[in-house]
């Protein structure tokens, strides 16, 4: 579904990624792990199109998308969340989620200015859809009219997931979905991620520090260290890998 091959990325002299290659299998959850500064977020930014890699390619659904802008990639069916929540802070929860439908709705400027007619039909149908598939699904119906700034951190994370779900993506990229969450919130989020996979068959790629979560829900894991891919495989394989243990626990272990 989503494949990355031989990705190289550098900022000035800093080599953020050096030859990362993996494939996120359709309908599976793939995890990317690694110590701080390993290049996980850079990898995400390269995949979603914010950074142009120096070398290598990103392919989506069999198509080379290395040169596409982030909005074009989104149009193809890629959605993502950000490590430090990137919701639209001036809007309500509902409006944030509605933005996920941007590429799927089609009203043009004239229809929008007139509203009644195609734009209204489309908006109402979309509203009904997100109410069911996103708001009910993520159990956020009690806050749909709340402004983002009034929400606690955990709920903001969930709304961001909701906004990505409203895009009905083929690939969902989650950048540290449970960072900063307590045990209960983490369990909730894990449940939602598994539900998304099960219910919609979405391919999921996630970056996470919470080892327990990654080991529990991922089918496939890629390990980065200093921009290099040091291991890849099933959770069990990766957990046994010497290089991975060294990277996490230091050479002495």
């Amino acid at each position: 579904m989503l494949s990355v091959s031989d990705l190289h990325l550098s900022f000035g002299g800093i080599k953020a990624l050096q030859g990362v290659s993996f494939e996120a299998a359709p309908g599976e959850i793939t995890g990317v792990i690694g110590p701080n500064g390993a290049g996980k977020t850079s990898l995400f930014n390269a995949i979603s199109g914010f950074y142009t890699p120096d070398r290598g390619r990103v392919a989506f659904d069999g198509r080379d998308i290395t040169g596409l802008s982030p909005d074009r990639r989104a149009g193809l069916g890629m959605a993502r969340t950000f490590q430090n929540i990137a919701l639209f802070r001036g809007m309500t929860v509902l409006d944030n989620i509605k933005l996920g439908g941007h590429t799927r709705l089609s009203a043009n400027v004239w229809q929008a200015l007139a509203y009644f007619g195609p734009a209204r039909r489309e908006e109402l149908a979309f509203r009904a859809e997100i109410e069911e598939r996103v708001i009910d699904f993520l159990e956020i119906d009690h806050i749909r009219k709340a402004p983002i700034t009034a929400l606690p951190y955990g709920l903001q994370k969930r709304v961001e997931l909701g906004r990505a779900l409203a895009m009905q993506p083929k690939v969902l990229m989650l950048d540290e979905p449970v960072a900063g969450m307590n045990r209960e919130e983490t369990a909730d989020m894990a449940r939602f991620i598994l539900d998304v996979q099960e219910e919609f068959g979405t391919t999921i790629l996630l970056v996470e520090h919470d080892m327990g979560l990654v080991m529990d829900i991922c089918a496939h894991i890629v390990v980065l260290n200093f921009g290099q891919q040091i291991a890849a495989g099933t959770p069990a394989e990766v957990a046994r890998d010497d290089e991975v243990i060294e990277a996490y626990l230091g050479a002495a272990a």
Binding site: S48, G49, F50, S69, P70, D71, R72, A74, G75, A79, R80, F82, A86, L87, F88, R89, G90, M91, D95, K98, L99, G100, G101, H102, T103, L105, A107, N108, V109, Q111, A112, L113, A114, Y115, A119, E123, R163, M167
Partner: peptide, 29 residues
């Protein structure tokens, strides 16, 4: 104008104001 801002077209404007890279990731050019 009120109509504009309850459809995708106007929402995209506000999205750019609030956080432009996040708007891009929503597929907004």
């Amino acid at each position: 104008v009120q109509n504009l801002f309850r459809t995708r077209v106007g929402r995209a404007f506000i999205a750019i104001r609030d956080r432009d890279y996040s708007a891009e990731i929503m597929g907004i050019s």
